[in-house]
């Protein structure tokens, strides 16, 4: 091997080591959470090889906070938002992609405003609206501001625009109505967009905190993130190991899904970002 080649190899090995070190650093918080959650509390801050393993922290966490209810709330929240987003964004995206109506460009610009001014920024005024509608402390109240998503409308409009109009003509000749065309031609062809948008939306709303915190005030409506924040507050007097166990419980479904469908997740975030 030449000297230059050996020098190149050395730099390459160094770079690989740096990349791995950074990866380890990036995983460290999660690795620590696993350590603390699966060991008895006295080992929470002592890292000894061969410390006994236990599941007691998980049982403790599960019994100290209504996690089952929180899971149900988050599940209801995420699915209802996703279902509404799919319907609303499909209809609006189709309108923008294939219909010429007066004021279309202005309407589209007004939709895009939401990309910049997200519901999080408008918590004060939206809270007033919700209390006028009597929707404070309901799951619908958490979800409503997010259901018409500018991001979803934009993504689906872009996708629908790439579908050849001849397909629509053909379906019309076959006697399909407008909604049938949408359902039988456009929606199936836009499947990858739905998958990508769905994954991004689910992870966003599974993790969302500020607005749910503002609008909920009871166990019956609180999603996992808000429940976890109350559970982990120092005032609650719960010890480290139990808090980390609760934290892992809360992130487990999403983390598991991510580990299983890693490629799909990464590609979805990529796809949604490039559009």
């Amino acid at each position: 091997m030449t000297a230059a080649g050996r020098r190149l190899d050395f730099w390459w090995a160094l770079e690989a080591a740096a990349a791995w070190l950074l990866a380890l650093l990036w995983l460290a918080p999660l690795l620590y959470a696993f350590w603390a959650a699966f060991h008895p509390p006295e080992y929470a801050t002592r890292f000894v090889l061969g410390a006994p393993l236990t599941l007691a922290n998980f049982f403790e966490a599960w019994s100290q906070a209504p996690f089952a209810r929180y899971f149900l709330n988050t599940f209801l929240l995420v699915t209802s938002i996703l279902a509404a987003q799919f319907v609303l964004c499909t209809l609006a995206g189709y309108a923008f992609a294939r219909f010429a109506f007066p004021g279309r460009d202005l309407a589209f610009a007004l939709v895009l405003v939401q990309l910049m001014i997200m519901p999080e920024v408008l918590i004060v005024e939206n809270y007033r609206t919700m209390s006028r509608l009597g929707l404070v402390d309901t799951i619908a109240g958490i979800g409503l501001p997010y259901m018409a998503s500018a991001f979803g409308i934009f993504l689906l409009r872009q996708t629908f625009k790439t579908i050849p109009e001849e397909l629509e003509e053909a379906a019309r000749v076959e006697g399909c109505s407008m909604l049938q065309i949408l359902w039988k031609v456009y929606v199936p062809l836009a499947r990858p967009t739905y998958v990508a948008y769905g994954l991004v939306s689910v992870s966003y709303h599974w993790n969302n905190f500020l607005w749910p915190l503002v609008i909920t005030n009871s166990v019956e409506t609180r999603p996992l993130t808000v429940g976890l924040a109350i559970f982990g507050a120092p005032e609650s007097g719960v010890d480290w190991s139990v808090i980390t166990a609760g934290t892992l419980l809360a992130v487990a479904p999403l983390l598991l899904a991510f580990l299983l469908f890693q490629r799909q997740f990464v590609q979805s975030f990529m796809y949604a970002g490039i559009k």
Binding site: A92, A95, Q114, L122, V124
Partner: peptide, 27 residues
């Protein structure tokens, strides 16, 4: 076609107006 376009847009438009545009102005 124009009517259809607006009809398709209406549900999303109502929500966007209520929770993005109205609160911006109201703020």
């Amino acid at each position: 076609n124009q009517v259809y376009g607006w009809l398709l847009l209406t549900p999303a438009a109502i929500l966007l107006l209520s929770f993005t545009h109205y609160p911006t102005v109201a703020t």
